[in-house]
């Protein structure tokens, strides 16, 4: 085996050192533009407002940890984190459960109108969500769901369903019929097959859909802004905006607050990068 590998021609010639240097240089430049503003925000939280005013582009000197501590302990930061977590988890649970049920019916049952129903959901991908936001607010107000997390969670579930179904259906369709037949012969019902075999098999797709939904909900701004007036119910994005308004003179505090608020999304992304990227591209590949 080893000798065989040696005998194979080299896949790629050693690159020209100038080309390689150029590649690194360009890649560094691109990564720098992406990341330097983020680093600036994080470092800015370790400076004082005075340091920032004296030299906006400087490094922390000396390093100040007080601002971060102040933001964590004083504001309603943790309450907002808790609220955002609750809303995002509720949304994710709803999207995944309702989405996989619908995708199951749309992939493993044969019935009249199936393709029409699928197209009905797919239409939601072309549907501009922002356009409906004003009447949606009025509808939620009439249902007494304004100032209520349900008023954020339910519409977010509705917005998330089309993409979820578009991602899940091909996945469920690809699971071989022989598996289903075998389960049926063993006396399982269709629902039993769904619960005991299909769901465990589709875990990777469910995780992908879940991660995408969670991040979208965590970052959502417009709908919570319209629906939630009570500060106790605010999600983190509303908290960031409110903090910026209240402490507009204290740049260091805003920077600290902003960088703390982006940590959950960044950490989540580090752990789930593959799922997010895989899901986005999977949806596009269809």
């Amino acid at each position: 085996m080893a000798t065989h590998a040696v005998a194979l021609p080299r896949r790629r010639r050693r690159g020209n050192p100038w080309t390689s240097a150029l590649t690194y240089g360009l890649a560094l430049a691109v990564a720098g533009v992406s990341i330097v503003p983020v680093v600036y925000v994080i470092l800015g939280g370790f400076r004082t407002a005075g340091q920032i005013a004296a030299n906006p582009a400087g490094l922390p000197n000396p390093w100040v940890f007080d601002t971060y501590l102040r933001v964590i302990s004083a504001g309603r930061f943790w309450r907002y984190v808790g609220n955002s977590t609750f809303v995002a988890l509720g949304t994710t649970l709803g999207v995944v459960v309702l989405g996989v049920c619908a995708a199951f019916a749309l992939s493993r049952y044969r019935f009249r109108g199936r393709e029409m129903l699928y197209t009905y959901f797919v239409l939601g991908l072309l549907f501009p969500a922002a356009a409906g936001i004003l009447p949606l607010y009025l509808l939620l107000r009439d249902l007494s769901l304004d100032n209520n997390w349900a008023g954020v969670i339910l519409p977010q579930i509705a917005y998330g369903l089309p993409l979820t179904i578009v991602i899940l259906r091909p996945f469920l369709l690809a699971i071989p019929n022989e598996l289903e037949d075998a389960a049926m012969i063993d006396g399982s019902s269709k629902i039993g097959f769904f619960w005991r075999i299909l769901l465990p098999l589709s875990r990777p797709a469910l995780v992908t859909v879940g991660v995408i939904t969670f991040v979208a909900s965590w970052n959502a701004f417009l709908l919570p802004m319209l629906i939630l007036n009570n500060q106790n119910l605010y999600t983190l994005p509303l908290g960031v905006q409110q903090f910026q308004g209240q402490y507009s003179s204290d740049t260091a505090a805003i920077l600290a607050y902003t960088s703390l608020s982006m940590m959950p999304a960044l950490l989540f992304f580090l752990f789930a990068e593959r799922q997010i990227v895989g899901g986005l591209t999977g949806a596009v590949k269809g």
């Binding site: 992406s34 983020v38 965590w218 970052n219 994005p237 608020s261 982006m262 997010i276 990227v277």
Partner: peptide
């Protein structure tokens, strides 16, 4: 690294660039 800005919340991006 190139993908990081896309993951940040719009609010974060807005507040950040405004400053």
């Amino acid at each position: 690294l190139v993908f990081v800005p896309y993951v940040l919340a719009e609010v974060t991006v807005g507040v950040m660039w405004r400053l």
